[in-house]
Design a binder for these strands. Structure first.
Lengths: 251, 251
DNA sequence: TCCAAGTTTGACCAAATGGTCCAAGTTCGA
DNA sequence: TCGAACTTGGACCATTTGGTCAAACTTGGA
């Protein structure tokens, strides 16, 4: 049988992975934060099946490996081979689950999105401002400690100009952002907060906390410590909270 | 004349560019901040010459182009061809000035280093704390506005784990850092400042200001503005300064 | 004017890399 | 037990890309 004949008899069987626009997928992911299984549930739930389960686990392992590699090397710096190796599978096998490197990258971003967006959404007008802000700082620092790669990945994406994330930023994120700006304004109006500029306060909270993940090398080089050390974590939490709440000027 | 003969008659003439360890070069650069011409002056100064002058200018243009490309795409994402194109020359010509892509990258980093390190070194114990800090914030914001690519390049390098910068971080930078920590401690001890944690204060000042360069896309997506707009620049300066000096709690 | 040194580039090369293909397993369910 | 669908990876391919080379061009200065 010639090669040509073979080609005709057995037409190439593309893996049945849908190829959506990365950006579109991300927006959807951002919208359904905390409701991930919704779509699946709607279109009839078959039993998980032991095989499917194993598949999910492997897929998760791949994403984890990919996160690590992407966060350190970036989309361009990371090679599919390297990720496959980190995941303990062959390159071809990795490509079986994620048709292209970029698709994999989007999947990783998608997975980190809820983690990334969550802390901000947690405070509302009823809360005590000082407490809510302290809680936000704590939540973001915990994230910087336990998932620095997620923070770094998003930082990397921002530095690239956020080609994939921009729709998320100006869509779902902006919605949350605006809502929280309103909350802070209300607090300030009620005199429960000094008259700060709400958007800048939010940026400040993000910057102050993410810094310990994104610039961890620098922090380590200058202080010799990192958030993974309990004492330093606590020290950082206290310092950031004190600074934000009370400022530098002696009272 | 055969090719072989030609080879013998005209042995390859390597460009006279010294190939130093990237990291070592960076440390030296960091140490001689503000004293760039020192070495040159020592080893006998010939007149600049018109050709040499033009060469310098071209070299500067290359560095500028490279900064732009590296800051957006990263070391791996940037192709030598793309940089050459941005500089308006051929790839081979670019490689004539900088023997390897990494060497070019180091040169770019080196060039940004003084800019990067300068603002912190500017305050001393004699200054008024509030003024000195406000000045630092202003200086860093100006830098974020006028040279965001420099900020982004360094951020990128940090996210990579700073393989090239680590010696600078734990050497020259740590020296300045420690000195300024002492200054802040003195201020606090004299009661001129609330009892903040000095290292964390410095991190905070960096994080708060660099954020507007590194995460400019996000800032733009959420507020529609950027530091290049005069009003927004001023607004940001005021907000950050107020937050740092007075905090959130109403007085 | 003339040439040696410096500059520039097109052609080329080898390695790395994203992605394809197919043959060989593996496993679930009937 | 058997086969269809799902997995897996070795071999392979086309492209990109960092870097080399030699030949041609430009120019300052003697």
């Amino acid at each position: 049988m010639t090669d040509a004949a073979a080609k005709i008899v057995k037409p190439p069987r593309k893996p049945a992975v849908k190829r959506a626009s990365g950006a579109r997928k991300l927006v959807k992911a951002a919208q359904s934060v905390g409701d991930i299984k919704a779509a699946e549930a709607l279109e009839g739930h078959r039993a998980p099946g032991p095989r499917e389960r194993a598949g999910e686990a492997r897929k998760a392992a791949i994403l984890k490996a990919a996160l690590g590699v992407f966060a350190r090397l970036g989309l361009d710096g990371a090679s599919v081979e390297a990720i496959a190796q980190a995941a303990g599978i062959s390159k071809a096998n990795l490509l079986y689950y994620h048709p292209t490197k970029e698709a994999l990258y989007v999947a990783v971003l998608e997975q980190g999105l809820s983690l990334w967006l969550a802390p901000l959404s947690r405070f509302s007008e009823g809360d005590d401002p000082a407490e809510a802000i302290a809680a936000l700082i704590d939540a973001k620092l915990v994230l910087s400690r336990d998932h620095p790669e997620v923070s770094r990945l998003f930082a990397l994406e921002m530095l690239r100009g956020a080609p994939l994330l921009k729709p998320v930023l100006s869509g779902p994120l902006k919605a949350v952002f605006d809502a929280k700006v309103a909350v802070i304004e209300a607090w300030a109006a009620a005199g429960r907060l000094a008259p700060v500029d709400p958007p800048h306060l939010i940026f400040a909270l993000w910057a102050l906390t993410q810094h310990y993940a994104d610039f961890a090398v620098q922090v380590r080089a200058l202080t010799g410590k990192s958030l993974s050390e309990k004492r330093f974590m606590e020290e950082t939490r206290a310092a950031v909270t004190a600074l934000v709440l009370d400022g530098l000027r002696p009272r």
